[in-house]
Design a protein around this nucleic acid. Structure first.
Lengths: 355, 355
DNA sequence: CGTTAGCACTCCATCTTCTCGAGTGCTAAG
DNA sequence: CTTAGCACTCGAGAAGATGGAGTGCTAACG
């Protein structure tokens, strides 16, 4: 069923206005809008029909209308004007991103903070790898008589290390042998296959350096497991409380608690595998706690088999246009930043957008 | 001026009760307490005097009494019964800590979460080093024709690494020379001294590997700077909203915002340098936002020149005895865990306490 | 002299009632 | 098809009424 142009226009106005004011909007308010050339009575009729179509709702008789979940859906999918960032905003965002982002988790924190600032809502950022990581190469550095630094290069191109204290002294020669052994036996093996069996096999050939093996294996397995898991960061939680719909402390607490818990872990599942922005409107939502609450998430690739998502959590009436615009811009900038080889730190080329 | 025993007892009861109920306590409630052998009228007299001494306050005539900041102070300093952990609690806490805590920031997150769970309040954990870190040793590992892994061992005994992509190919020999050069010139130097001058000097001697030098120096300086800074983690923010005093959204928001901002950065300064537990009661507090709010922080050493702090933020009427007991226990367990060499992962010896 | 019972008084929290106004749906005229 | 007009609905917020918890004071008690 297709809506008339006028109905669409009215619906759009209702949503826009509701987004701004957070209060039910009446026919008069719509009629007063600058580019609305009908009287409030006409609008009323249209609104009545939109209501019976399930796109608007009335909190009670004689209150204005509020968009229903279906109404938001339609708005997001069809009616929303895709709001470009102004030049200023784009500039300030990209200069913020430019800073060197060292490690993944630091990066996530930073990004979450930026997104939160840009949207004035709580923001989530997460990154995960698809596929199993394996160790690709081991190096052992002798850091003293009784300490060794283990450096492991992973298939994901990430490098991890750990300083080990030993109860016994080891020689350079020991380490050389051990490193060769590790590279021969423990590379290319997914986390799941680090079993007691493998341990025994490796230790048997390890000679004097045998006591080191279990520790290194533990560390490796742990690291690989961690690689598979999802990192995430949240910022700007307090912003939620500034919004009128969360003046109800109970509601706010539910949402905030769902951050603490692992409830958000399965966001990636909900998002599916395609990149792009998804809007989860109110009841369609992931966690039960998040009625009245929408989640907007953008998924994108950051190279090297990693996927990242950024998103915000806010009231269902949040300004979707603004939020999605900002998220897409962030996503784009970030994936550019990451696909670029880290090394030649070229001054960011002209990637600005028109206003 | 010294209070009579009875006054002390009354004061303690008022605070205890207020902690539990979050409501002004009346004379009758105190008199009804099991080990209170006076009538409500007597208690009333005592309370009136305590009020005129500034230790209690009345929200208004004909409401019960509430401890004043000074009252809390006295309570914390003298009256509080130091509440030992029950055996069960101690056991559950130490088993939680036992898990391997890999990196500092992971560790902080985990600890904050645990503390928050144990106290049912928002918790903060932070760690910082005192003194300047320097690089102690450089190793370069060739990871392919055009990539190198830089491994830096710091004076703090932490090891960091970074994978570098190069625009040019390098040989093992190049790297060996460069590593020697780095170890000769860039070790033992604090972050502040990584100047353009040093860069030029090192590059002059670097030969074919010269292009690598600036990147490594950048990374080193950045790392050292980060070492000096304080890491921190916060958990359980949503718990704040469960407390009656923060049903006032504005108040809650102020406190939660102060987490987001860097307001807490100067907590270390306020804490001074001695180890131990400090209670910052309401108005004595750090940030202006935190009126009505107290902060309990415990500072302790975790070896290798690192100091850590754990603490909670909550209403001034929080259960100080419980909170400090738990914090001290955490602090003790953690500093034990860290002072122990990581390697020989002995089954935790008997460090339980009596009930 | 310290302790306690009794009592008048205060003042907040809570509930009820009332009023006001925004917004609606319907009808009839343009 | 659009618009003006009007009676009607209903919630938000103000105003008022009620009850009870808690106080301070006084006087009696051991």
């Amino acid at each position: 069923m297709e809506l008339s142009e006028r109905k669409k226009k009215v619906l759009r106005c209702v949503v826009d206005l509701y987004i701004r004011t957070a209060e039910p909007v009446g026919s008069k308010a719509i009629a007063a809008l600058p580019d609305m050339s009908y009287s409030s009575a006409t609008i009323r009729n249209e609104m009545a029909e939109l209501t019976s179509l399930g796109l608007l709702e009335q909190p009670h008789t004689s209150a204005g209308r509020v968009p229903s979940a279906a109404g938001y859906r339609l708005y997001v999918d069809e009616l929303m004007e895709d709001q470009r960032l102004s030049l200023d905003e784009a500039r300030s965002i990209s200069s913020a991103i430019d800073e060197k982002l060292q490690r993944v988790d630091r990066m996530l924190e930073k990004v979450a903070k930026l997104v939160s600032q840009a949207t004035e809502l709580p923001a989530i950022s997460l990154a995960s790898r698809q596929g199993q990581a394996t160790a690709q190469r081991f190096d052992l550095i002798r850091a003293g008589d009784q300490s060794v630094i283990v450096v492991i290069m992973l298939s994901t191109e990430e490098v991890v290390n750990k300083l080990l204290r030993l109860p016994v002294a080891v020689t350079e020669a020991d380490l050389k042998v051990l490193a060769a052994l590790l590279n021969a036996t423990m590379t290319g093996i997914p986390a799941g296959d680090f079993t007691g069996q493998l341990l025994e096999k490796v230790m048997a050939s390890a000679g004097t350096a045998a006591p080191l093996v279990p520790v290194i294996m533990d560390f490796t397995a742990e690291t690989l497991r961690r690689q598979g898991s999802t990192n995430m960061a949240i910022a700007g939680q307090a912003k939620l409380l500034g919004l009128p719909e969360y003046r109800d402390v109970d509601k706010a607490q539910k949402v905030l608690s769902s951050f603490d818990e692992e409830a958000l872990r399965d966001l990636p599942a909900v998002m599916g595998s395609e990149s792009g922005t998804k809007v989860l409107v109110g009841p369609e939502n992931v966690a039960q706690e998040l009625k009245d609450t929408s989640v907007v998430m953008t998924k994108f690739d950051i190279g090297e088999g990693m996927q990242a998502m950024i998103g915000v959590v806010g009231p269902t009436r949040m300004d979707y246009a603004k939020v999605t615009a900002r998220l897409s811009y962030f996503a784009e900038s970030l994936s550019k930043l990451f696909s670029k080889p880290e090394q030649p730190q070229l001054p960011e080329a002209k990637t600005r957008q028109e206003e």
